[in-house]
Simulated assay, not measured.
Amino acid sequence: MKIEEIIVVEGKDDTVAIKRAVEADTIETNGSAISMETLERIAHAQEKRGVIVFTDPDYPGRRIRAIIEEHVPSVKHAFLAKEKTIAKNGQGLGIEHAKDEDIRAALKAVYTPRLTEHEVEITMEDLIDAALVAHPQAKLRRTRLGELLKIGYTNGKQLQKRLHIFGISKEEFIRAVQALNQEEL
């Protein structure tokens, strides 16, 4: 599988894992201390070939993703669930620990942010009704929702924005919430 876009990863081990799974070029952020020089390289890559951000499903990975999104809002995103990135010995988490087939599946399910302004379909009331915010199980439910919709984990404040950015329709949202409810989370 050949990927035309340049994949942004956190480090060298992630690059090794990506190149093992697919034919692609990468840009490494060298962790969450992402420099302006790296952000400029990402912006240039976006103009020339397009970019897919593929960071670890942890706080530093989400922070890197947010910084890149702020500076280059049109980048695409690939996500892997936390359990698919845990090291075999249980000591560590990251893209570098993922199976090749999981990396390929995540890169096939890439999301392109929707940048057009339109009426928000999914309201905060919908999120509350779905027990995704202001509920004792909200974090667990948001984690699973992110896996079902392949949009990654987000906190309660950012969930509505993430659903909008990735163009999740009300129907897709309702189906995912129904699946959540059947899982009895």
Rank of each mutant, 00 (worst) to 15 (best):
R62H: 12
G61A: 05
I52M: 10
H44W: 14
Q46K: 03
Y59M: 12
D56F: 07
R62M: 11
R49W: 12
G50W: 03
F54P: 03
T55E: 00
A66D: 13
P73K: 00
D56G: 12
I67R: 02
E69A: 14
G50M: 05
V51C: 07
R63D: 14
R62F: 10
K48E: 14
R63V: 14
K48S: 08
E70A: 15
I64C: 00
T55N: 03
P60H: 01
I68N: 00
I64T: 01
H71F: 11
G50P: 12
T55A: 00
A78P: 08
A78F: 07
T55W: 01
V53Q: 04
V72P: 07
I68T: 04
H77E: 14
P73H: 02
S74C: 05
V75D: 09
S74P: 07
V75A: 06
R49H: 15
R49D: 15
E70T: 15
E69M: 10
D56C: 08
R49Y: 13
P60R: 03
A78M: 09
I67P: 02
A66L: 09
I52H: 04
S74L: 07
I64L: 00
I67Y: 00
A66G: 12
E69N: 11
Q46A: 02
S74T: 14
I68S: 00
S74A: 12
A45E: 06
H44E: 15
T55P: 01
R62P: 10
G50N: 07
A78W: 02
R62L: 15
K76C: 08
D58H: 05
H71P: 09
V72R: 03
H44I: 11
G50Q: 08
I64E: 00
K76T: 12
H77N: 11
K48M: 13
G61M: 01
K48D: 13
H44G: 13
G61L: 05
G61E: 06
Y59P: 08
H44L: 14
P60I: 03
D56T: 07
S74G: 11
D56Y: 04
H71Y: 11
E47F: 05
V75C: 12
S74F: 07
P73M: 04
H77M: 14
S74W: 02
V72G: 11
V72W: 03
V53Y: 05
G61V: 08
D56P: 06
R49K: 11
